[in-house]
Design a protein around this nucleic acid. Structure first.
Lengths: 184, 184
DNA sequence: AAGCGCATGTAAAAGGTTACATGATTAC
DNA sequence: GTAATCATGTAACCTTTTACATGCGCTT
């Protein structure tokens, strides 16, 4: 049976799908994008890589260097790509965080055009639902509410609004200029 | 020594600072705002409440009802308010998530006007820093980059942009109309 | 000579989820 | 009479973080 570990497992797999990397590289890359995806620690990354290796989803190329730790460069295998694709294909559920959606976006090249659009539309409808819910709460609050509730709601509403605007504009671009993605 | 549990602990404490509630109430409330703060499960909430009780940060008023489980209504104590205030006062570090910042906003009434403004300004400068970093990456990418990277960056940039816009406008309001918050 | 960046990894603990257990009441 | 809501809680598990351990090379 495959080793557990899920979120981080697929994030790493996604990165390795773009190019071979060492554990240290993975760490640095994620650190530089910590705001977007998160900043997992060494204690999570190295065991995850070992798990991926054991399951045959990656291979390792060990570069021995005298007097310093070997540099282990991991590459994704065909089985790894399949597994990643399966993860990518499963619809992003209702509770999907921004970061998880981010990761999906970064892997856009693994989607068909239609698949990418479908994913974005799903996100769109979810966020629209949230916005509606927030507006209803907002209407309920109205007069006597305390300032904290109002601030928080305003903040959340503006975030939802912005995300929807981005999705709209990006979906529009994807539909109108279907050639761009095929261009190499 | 106080029982561990941190994030959830303070979220619950924050809710109890607004009004006494049962564990079930806490769950329902957070569920209705799951998008904003998260949706912790019963298995997290009840133990957390027990911890708070043991540490004297809350008291419980048990309403026995025949033939059904007692309803336990928790109220925050003075020690609890102090502890909450200490959490609130510590500056939100660089990695602070939207949800953590959200919770701070919801507790606005526990801030002085100056304290609230300071917090928001700090957030502002952090997000501005992120936006700058993203723009620099974006400039680096430029031409040959793959579509995923571009989508992800665009998404992140638009989110940062929106948050800054909200912060600007809200900070403006807070400075210009200092009377509003005092009004009851 | 001190500290940081490179580069790997392990062990223990924290924090939280999932799934289960119980049982009355209300709605369809 | 079947399901959902109310209402509490426990136990086992999963993921990830924290802190440690090691050691070379480069910069200040």
């Amino acid at each position: 049976m495959p080793a557990s570990n899920t979120r981080l497992r697929y994030i790493i797999l996604g990165l390795l799908a773009q190019q071979p990397m060492s554990g240290y590289d993975v760490r640095r890359f994620l650190k530089s994008l910590s705001w977007l995806i998160g900043n997992p620690s060494a204690g999570g990354i190295y065991p995850a890589l070992r798990g991926l290796l054991q399951d045959g989803l990656v291979t390792v190329d060990v570069k021995l260097r005298e007097d310093r730790p070997p540099r282990k460069v991991y590459s994704i295998t065909e089985a790894g790509r399949d597994e990643l694709q399966r993860w990518i294909d499963q619809p992003v559920g209702l509770g999907t965080s921004m970061k998880a959606f981010m990761m999906r976006l970064m892997l856009a090249r693994h989607y068909s055009r239609a698949g990418l659009i479908a994913h974005m539309r799903q996100r769109q409808s979810e966020v629209a639902g949230h916005r509606l819910a927030l507006r209803q709460i907002s209407a309920t609050l109205d007069e006597g509410a305390d300032m904290g509730q109002r601030l928080a709601l305003g903040y959340a509403l503006s975030a939802a609004q912005a995300e929807l605007a981005w999705l709209d504009s990006e979906l529009g671009r994807l539909s109108q200029e279907p050639s761009l993605a095929e261009v190499d």
